[in-house]
Amino acid sequence: MDDLYRDHILDHYKRPRNFGELEPHDLERAEHNPLCGDELGVHIRVADGRIEDLRFYGHGCAISQAAASIASEELKGMELTEAATLDADWMLDLLGIPISATRRKCALLGLKVVRGAVSGDSSWPEQSR
């Protein structure tokens, strides 16, 4: 078993959750992975200060697509204020696989576009530990 391409990663890559367009939506953001030019975007529908529903769209590698898919399941129902403060540790813990420096941006792109949509923050998520 490959330590990076574990079954759950490949499952989310081949059958991504919450992918497509969401109409109507209240928030959106799309960005490119500077490493490869892949584009990932998100549509978010908001109700009572929470993420009522969301969809990721675009294309990318197994790591970026699986990370967005896994994150989408956790983000549904989350308060916007909490989503705005999610850091890299949150995403990497959810992925549960060792991410090398060269693939870090692949893993964090999904969270980056969500934070951008929610708070306008255009920085890369930081690691706190």
């Binding site: 490959d2 490493l35 490869c36 030019g37 294309h59 990318g60 590698c61 197994a62 790591i63 692949c106």
Partner: peptide, 21 residues
């Protein structure tokens, strides 16, 4: 397969190839 994943898996076999635009 995304090209990054192709290159990542090749790299694990010691084969250095590039992926991207």
């Amino acid at each position: 397969m995304h090209p990054h994943d192709i290159a990542e898996l090749a790299g694990r076999a010691g084969v250095c190839i590039r992926a991207g635009h």
